[in-house]
């Protein structure tokens, strides 16, 4: 069944988008920065997991290591790059972030070489029959992982003190500051969690394609921006829905609109149409 195939393919793609976009939304909610360099964490995660899996033989351990390393890198990006320019107009941080990402892409190229990196013995590459289609275990793991991680995050955002602090900052930055909650520790944590999630997404993409390369973050980065804008910046639940919706729309779009537009153009055409109708995003207020 073509319909089901396309739908599931879209959900797999959407789960990856969701894992990247969630971190962007968390950062945007907190700092009002469009954190383009987030995609660098995605690429970093891809490379580190492939490298560590090849070196250690354990995929699970390398996932953890990649997430941890990217999380720490995320904190460094916040401390060294964003904190000093927070008081400037928002486009300054955006431009700095684009510069940072373009620079990171080149650093990956210098450090890991231009030809990319593959698993010598890719884990989870067996396929399983499911109605009429065959799915890789890795693809199932992506969907399950995304749902589990994002549900866990939803619990954190809604039930814990950290989540409370984040929501307070999103709603009323000044008031939150006055109550003393928007301190650097919260920001560090948010950058850590967001970057770790992006790294996990990168690791899963590197696994499914069995390939990590310097520019693998570029398209997901721009798509993830489109997704959080679609969702109405700074909305966690909306981001998940928008990511899955975009994945599915793309996978159908490439079949039915593929003659006129390529995959990326479909995503952005959808985004532009939505923004013209609802300038603050689907779930945005006002």
């Amino acid at each position: 069944m073509l319909f089901l195939d396309l739908f599931v393919e879209g959900l797999v793609q959407g789960s990856i988008y969701a894992l990247i976009a969630i971190g962007l939304t968390l950062v945007y909610g907190l700092l009002r920065i469009l954190h383009v360099a987030h995609a660098g964490m995605f690429t970093l995660g891809g490379y580190l997991s492939v490298w560590a899996t090849n070196a250690s033989g354990s995929f699970v351990l390398s996932l953890l290591a990649a997430a941890l390393a990217a999380g720490v890198a995320g904190i460094l990006v916040y401390r060294l790059c964003y904190r000093p320019i927070l008081h400037r107009p928002p486009h300054v941080a955006l431009i700095a972030s684009i510069g940072l990402y373009v620079g990171m892409e080149e650093l990956f190229r210098l450090f890991f070489g231009p030809y990319g990196m593959s698993h010598t013995d890719p884990p989870l590459s067996e396929t399983v029959g499911f109605f009429s289609m065959r799915l890789k275990y890795a693809e199932i793991a992506i969907m399950a992982g995304a749902v589990a991680l994002i549900s866990a995050l939803a619990v954190v955002v809604n039930k814990t003190r950290l989540g409370m602090a984040w929501r307070a900052t999103v709603a009323e930055p000044q008031m939150a500051l006055s109550c003393g909650i928007n301190n650097d520790r919260i920001r560090d944590l948010i950058f850590f969690i967001g970057s770790a999630l992006a790294a996990l997404a990168g690791a899963m993409v590197a696994l499914v394609n069995n390939y990590a390369e310097p520019t693998m973050g570029a398209v997901p980065a721009y798509k993830a921006l489109a997704i959080i804008v679609l969702a109405g910046l700074g909305d966690v639940g909306g981001t998940l829905l928008a990511a899955l919706a975009l994945g599915v729309i793309e996978s159908f779009g490439t079949i039915y609109l593929g003659k006129a537009l390529d995959r990326d153009a479909i995503a952005f055409a959808f985004m532009i149409v939505v923004l013209m109708l609802r300038p603050r995003g689907i779930f945005g207020k006002g």
Partner: peptide, 24 residues
């Protein structure tokens, strides 16, 4: 219709849309 960050992403989308159309 859109301002600031939303405008930045919209214009970025226009760029991708242009390329996507030309390529096909």
């Amino acid at each position: 219709r859109v301002r600031h960050d939303f405008l930045a992403i919209t214009t970025m989308g226009v760029g991708f849309l242009f390329l996507g159309i030309v390529r096909q």
